[in-house]
């Protein structure tokens, strides 16, 4: 079983600065981690390799420093990794990002699955997994909360939707996107960390993946961020302090009146 796991390096905190001119994220000086949901994708991929043999390859599109996310993926147990990095990739929206990842996956030869996190915490779009599938003309099973059974040609999955879960049989190769319920991501092992330090992670450019230059980065992106602004704080909190036992009743009464006024009671 050959599994490719596209991952994304994201800012660790939510104290992110934006470039007001380009509408893109300023990543300098912010601690970076693997997108949390991608850890679940890595975990499932490793579990499947442990059960069926094969290899797990992590890929990421990003600046040169995104290599640290790939090294973490190796430390968790991925076999190898490839960084997709080129100035031409910068400023890509989900369309142009999906394109680069799909072109890189095409270059990797045959594979059984592409497993992604359902969405990344920074952009929060969830569009790249289905986007990769669309470029590769593969089926995509999104919101996967359980991998029930996998063989050479197909897999049975549980897809979490609004009011329950669908049980799906999916022909392979396919693209799957994972949500939290699917597994508990493992921690890197000491041996894994040592391997991660030494391993050679190739960097592929636009040229290496034979990409059309007009489909890359900002140029290849149909969408443009035109304005970034902070949400207006419109709420005026009516705050009552009732740390003293004696005024608990009074505070509760005021809340009940508030709720009655708004027709909740």
């Amino acid at each position: 079983m050959r599994i490719i796991v596209p991952i994304k390096q994201v800012p660790e905190t939510n104290t992110v600065k934006m470039d007001e001119n380009t509408g893109t994220i300023i990543r300098d000086g912010v601690e970076s981690i693997i997108n949390p949901l991608d850890l679940y994708a890595i975990e499932i991929a490793i579990q499947l390799r442990q059960q069926h043999g094969g290899e797990v390859i992590a890929i990421s599109m990003g600046p040169p420093k995104a290599v640290t996310a790939l090294r973490e993926a190796i430390a968790m147990g991925c076999d190898s990794a490839v960084l997709l990095s080129d100035k031409a990739f910068a400023g890509a929206d989900t369309w142009a990002t999906s394109y680069v990842l799909a072109k890189a996956i095409e270059r990797m030869g045959s594979y059984d699955m592409v497993i992604c996190g359902e969405r990344a915490t920074d952009g929060d779009t969830g569009q790249v997994g289905p986007g990769i599938a669309s470029f590769l003309d593969l089926p995509v099973a999104s919101y996967i909360g359980k991998v029930e059974q996998v063989d050479k040609k197909s897999c049975r999955l549980h897809r979490l939707v609004e009011n329950g879960h669908e049980v799906l049989d999916v022909e392979l190769p396919a693209v799957l996107t994972m949500v939290k319920e699917v597994a508990d991501p493992r921690l890197p092992t000491l041996g894994g960390k040592q391997r991660a330090k030494k391993i050679d992670i190739p960097v592929w450019t636009a040229n290496d993946i034979e990409a059309d230059l007009d489909k890359l980065g900002l140029t290849g992106s149909p969408t443009r961020v035109v304005r970034i602004f902070r949400p207006k704080v419109v709420r005026q909190c009516e705050k009552i302090t009732a740390m003293d036992d004696s005024i608990v009743d009074q505070a509760v009464d005021k809340l009940v009146v508030f709720l009655q006024k708004k027709d909740f009671i």
Partner: peptide
């Protein structure tokens, strides 16, 4: 932006060469 919309729309937007904004 349901489980259907968020799966179908990106799949279609790629093939339609269209811009798509989430949520």
């Amino acid at each position: 932006a349901t489980s259907t919309g968020r799966t179908l729309m990106p799949y279609v937007a790629i093939k339609a060469n269209a811009g798509l904004t989430a949520d």
